[in-house]
Amino acid sequence: MSLPSVNLTERLLEEVQAHRHADYPVSPWILNRWSSRSFSDRAVSDEALHTVLEAARWAPSSSNLQPWRFVVARTREERERFQAFIRPTNRLWTDRAPVLILLASHKLNANGEPNGAHAFDTGAAWGILALQAALLGLSTRAVGGFDREIARRILHVPDDVELHAVVALGYRGEKETLHESFRDREVPNSRRPLADSLIEGAWPDTAP
């Protein structure tokens, strides 16, 4: 599967120029990846979906435990099952996504001991999944607004598995297809300056 053309890269750059400016040089694909809510009716092929998940498979993993799991919903029946635990406000746009992926992780290692890195590793897998999707011209948005207990019950998820987020995946649609409450928000958001997140050497002493 080939990557998008140079022309597409240039178009995407234009899309974010008004909203995103890096403090230091990074790949334009990093800046171009943003979490849109609008999805078109275009289907996601098996090859595209599996390429996105294959990329996530190669995420860094503590002790190579690979705790992540991806519960994929593509058919109408499967997506309706997911809709039963996604919050109504989020369903205003997730219902249009052709693919929904529940990100989960095993909390224990093979010896039944806690894996303190399971959520950290799964977050790394999500980041790579999102970037690979963008490289294929796909959009992703992670949803934390869902009922985890209902999801656990409906999907028969074991107690030793933690549920993190539902990822909507598909090709971007027109913002006019969104519920009016989301249309003005359908733009790339920015980030605070790097300096505001950077701590040199040790946490600053805030004691009086």
Rank of each mutant, 00 (worst) to 15 (best):
S38C: 12
L92D: 04
Q83P: 00
E80G: 01
S40E: 11
T89S: 10
R79E: 00
R79I: 02
N64H: 13
F120P: 00
S36E: 01
F85E: 01
D46W: 10
S40N: 09
N32E: 15
S61A: 07
P60F: 07
S36M: 01
K107R: 14
R69A: 08
E78P: 00
A117D: 08
A97T: 06
A56S: 13
N64V: 09
H106N: 13
S62L: 05
L49T: 08
R42F: 05
H118M: 11
F39Q: 04
S61G: 11
P114A: 12
A73W: 02
R74W: 04
D41S: 15
A73G: 10
W58N: 06
A84M: 02
V72R: 02
E80Q: 12
P60E: 05
A84W: 00
F120L: 12
N90S: 09
S45C: 12
F39I: 04
L92T: 07
V52C: 08
S38M: 10
S35E: 12
I86C: 02
R79H: 04
L49N: 08
L103E: 03
A110M: 10
R79A: 02
T89Y: 09
V72P: 03
F82H: 00
V52K: 10
R69Q: 14
I30E: 13
D121Y: 08
H118F: 15
V71K: 06
E78C: 01
D95T: 10
R33D: 09
P67A: 10
H118A: 07
D121H: 12
A55D: 07
T94P: 00
E78R: 05
I86T: 01
Q83V: 00
H118E: 11
L31C: 08
A117G: 03
P67K: 08
F39E: 01
R37V: 08
P98Y: 06
T94E: 00
R96T: 03
G112D: 02
P67L: 09
R87L: 09
R33Y: 06
I86Q: 00
A59G: 02
V72M: 04
E77N: 05
E77W: 01
R42V: 14
R96C: 02
S35H: 11
R37E: 09
G112Q: 02
